[in-house]
Design a protein around this nucleic acid. Structure first.
Lengths: 159, 159
DNA sequence: GTGGATGCAAAGAATTTGCAACCAA
DNA sequence: TTGGTTGCAAATTCTTTGCATCCAC
């Protein structure tokens, strides 16, 4: 239950996504290297946005340097295949966006668990800003709250 | 036009807000000190959120240390009279919130000018999250775009 | 008078950079 | 082969901390 991967159908999945990653990199004229593929699969297989040091800790090849993670993530962010998120705690977090549509997050103030929030009504606000003269508008939106589990913790002590 | 203040009615205004700041600090059981009042008036008189070093650069008393600015801003953020904002550039920014209602920002991608966005419809989204089991919900929302001036720059060159 | 606040200097931590070795194309 | 990438170590930069002095209460 520790370092074991679930082997049921993950082998072909893994190969599929690997090919996918290679295509993305080469279509952006970027070299296909081990650290880059490694980081992409880490981001792909984690549903929550990760910090630089979390990514570094999950790397298959432990020789990969922290500096490489910084360089790679900054490259990916510049290429817009990775999104940088600030959850108002100490570290910036990063998530893959090349294959996902625009979404936001709700972070539990206590356990720091993250859920996605798919939303749409923000478009109206963006339209309002367009009327004010702005163009090329985007936004970032994060919610913070106490999740059900953490609220129950406070209410009763143990579930 | 450099270090001069506009003197028309600002003297009485200045005294008024000074008394206001003192009241705020003492109501929160915090000592009234020169750096604190200085920082509060800087935040008050600037409509855009400021970085730590911008605040430090605007201090009347140039002997006030950067460390004091950090300590003071962190104190104010903890007391919730100052709000921390991440505009996805290098530095965190801070604005006074004790006398303002909840609002958001639109930042020009080019000139980095900031306008406020007063909004309401987010409440609906928060209600949705409440139904999912979350409590004590808040959010942060920032918009990014090109302002009218900067768009014109690109379009025609000079106004 | 006394404990909290400040200035100064030094420490700490996150991120970036220089460079030689390495490797993808 | 060749220029981009990496590992390693050193340098930067932002932020925090220790401590003696100062000052608000």
């Amino acid at each position: 239950m520790t370092a074991q991967k679930n082997n049921t159908k993950s082998i072909s999945d893994k190969e599929f996504t690997l090919e996918e990653f290679k295509l993305i990199l080469s279509s952006l004229s970027q070299r296909i290297t081990e650290p880059r593929l490694d980081i992409l699969s880490i981001l792909k297989s984690n549903h929550n946005p990760l910090t630089i040091s979390e990514i570094h800790g999950k790397l298959k090849n432990k020789k990969t340097d922290l500096a490489t993670v910084y360089r790679t993530i900054n490259l990916f962010a510049g290429l817009r295949i990775v999104n940088e998120i600030d959850f108002k705690d100490e570290f910036k977090r990063y998530e893959l966006i090349y294959d996902r549509h625009h979404h936001h997050h709700i972070v539990c103030r206590k356990c720091r668990n993250v859920e996605n929030v798919e939303t749409c009504m923000l478009d109206e606000l963006e339209n309002l800003l367009k009327k004010k003269g702005y163009s090329e508008i985007s936004h970032s939106l994060e919610f913070f709250g106490l999740c059900r589990n953490c609220r129950n913790d406070s209410d009763m002590k143990s579930a």
